[in-house]
Design a protein around this nucleic acid. Structure first.
Lengths: 144, 144
DNA sequence: CTATGATGTGTAGCGTGCTACACAATGCGG
DNA sequence: CCGCATTGTGTAGCACGCTACACATCATAG
């Protein structure tokens, strides 16, 4: 069964997580990716440059542009140019975003718990370490 | 760090896997998803209905439609209607696909090994079992 | 001060995933 | 035989991820 290896498991889990979270966030017109950006911004005090978001979110530049622009359209962030450095786009959470901040955080925690239901603390730790190892394997340059 | 839980790891790994595999498959005008469908078809003797593919690939119907249609455009599969059951779309690998079949299989194995580099057989088994448990948690209906 | 490179942003185009809807073919009960 | 549910397919429209390119702004060397 060459198709159904670890990579296939990972993909399946990622898809299901996305569908679940998006369903839970639908009432707010938010998505999982947007909620993650929201949490990231919140951790940074509610404000950052778009570039900082890109680095934090570990995702390509155009993807962040799209997410931020959709969040702006839906009133969750506002953006402006740094008057001092006019090429820097600043992003800030709106009150509307801050209002559901705790709810987002709870939702993410809930998803995590639901996914890990039935696993012991030790098993969760193992899983975390193993995934971290895999992640580092994939991040290392393939210097051969 | 609410953002960077297991779910975030999973997403990151899935993204990196996709980028790596797509790069490796670029010379054939194939993608990871398409190569997976190719392998699935190969396991089924090189032929199946589109519906069977949808069930096997654990992905929504329109997604499979798109993948199959792009594979057909690139000459990796050919399709026709079952003369007996005219609503069934049959899909078959072309010789061009069969020719790179072994190469695909090797690529997938290679990606898997690269990702799991440095892990013992026991750790890989653990990871597999843990991911399977997570997967089942996410598949179960939330009957509450 | 001006030219050149580095940095930050934006856009185009594609593949993959989803939901929601519409349509065609089949099968089955009346 | 006719109508209606079931089954299989197709399309529309969206979000998100990518690469590749283009442009604007800043910083710095000459």
């Amino acid at each position: 069964m060459p198709v159904k290896g670890i990579g296939y498991f990972i993909k399946t889990i990622d898809d299901k997580l996305k569908v679940r979270a998006d369903a839970a966030l639908k009432e707010h017109n938010l998505t999982l990716a947007q909620s993650r950006v929201l949490m990231l911004l919140d951790e940074r005090g509610g404000q950052a440059t778009q570039k900082e978001l890109e680095d934090l979110f570990d995702v390509s530049h155009p993807t962040v542009v799209g997410i931020v622009s959709r969040m702006e359209q839906n009133g969750y962030v506002e953006t402006w140019l740094d008057p001092k450095v006019q090429r820097s786009k600043m992003v800030r959470l709106t009150p509307k975003a801050r209002a559901i901040d705790a709810e987002m955080s709870a939702m993410i925690r809930e998803q995590e718990e639901s996914m890990l239901r039935g696993l012991t603390g030790e098993q969760i730790g193992q899983l975390e370490r193993l995934l971290d190892a895999v992640c580092r394997n994939l991040t290392e340059e393939t210097i051969t």
